[in-house]
Amino acid sequence: MSNLVLLTEEDHVTTITLNRPEQVNALNEEMLSALAERLKEAFHNDSKIVVLEANGKAFSAGGDLNMMVNSDTGGHFENIMNTIEDIVLTLYQMPKITIAALKGSAAGLGLSLTLACDYVLAKSDAKVAMNFIGIGLIPDGGGHFFMQQRIGTVRAKQTIWEGKRLEADEAKGLGLIDFVINSDMDQVVNQYIDKLKKSPILAMIESKMIYHQQSIDQLKSFLADETKGQTNMRQTSDHQEGVDAFLNKRHPNFTWE
């Protein structure tokens, strides 16, 4: 198993750790495959709580740009999108209480994954961004679905269109983050886990599964539409311009083509 995603299990808690810190945990194909496998392992083990975290200064910069640029041939892009769909559906249907613990930034697909969790806890200096728009793309990983669930359609649209990097307190005000932590992150996460352990967690999970079962077909529809939309957007000149501008650290000149 790749060491790009780590898994530990102790006292009914599984911790899944993104482990590509030198690349700000940008999700390349190998890392996505490893994450899919780790989530399936967590899905079937005896834990009742799953924590999704990351090593390094950032939670995740999102999809690896090199992977996106070089995935045009041989059904490669389709395979990547299928893996992302697998990850999101496994995480959303996880029969556990899931917690995303954010240090640093969570952007693009990285943010979509955090929003798939039941709770999003973030350090006070964390930042989040649904910033696909900067390279002429749309959110994937269920980003449209989770944004709509958390903040409503109108705010979701506007937040996606702006692609703005949000400070932790601003994101909490919108509803994208549940708790902002001003003290030691690990200590507070452990305190929250201890609180869950003292709760009737089986009843909590049962309520979760009722809600999520009612929404699963809608999430699958969103994922399918995101794949179609992302395929279309990748063929535009605006996407190519956005990528080139990002790589060359200049402002893009979008032409609607």
Rank of each mutant, 00 (worst) to 15 (best):
Q235I: 11
I216A: 03
Q240T: 00
I97G: 01
L52R: 01
K40S: 08
K123F: 03
A100I: 04
A203W: 00
E41L: 09
N19M: 13
I181F: 01
C117N: 08
R165T: 14
K40E: 12
T83Q: 10
L39M: 06
S207H: 10
Q149E: 15
N55G: 11
E41W: 00
Y192N: 13
G143H: 09
A156G: 03
T17P: 01
F145P: 10
A100K: 02
W256L: 04
K57N: 12
T15R: 15
V180I: 07
H239F: 15
L174I: 05
G143S: 13
T114H: 03
I138H: 06
Y92T: 08
I201N: 01
Q148K: 15
S221I: 00
E10I: 09
R250I: 09
A245N: 06
I216V: 11
G136M: 11
S33Y: 10
E85D: 13
E22G: 01
E22S: 11
T73H: 12
V188F: 15
S124H: 13
G175K: 05
K249M: 14
A116F: 06
G175H: 03
L32G: 00
E10R: 15
A107R: 15
V188C: 02
I160M: 14
I201M: 01
I193V: 15
R234P: 00
H212N: 13
I210R: 14
A101Y: 05
N131E: 01
I87T: 04
S199C: 08
R234S: 10
F145A: 01
H144N: 14
A106Q: 05
T15E: 12
K172W: 00
T227C: 06
A168F: 04
L7K: 14
T159C: 07
K48T: 13
A61D: 00
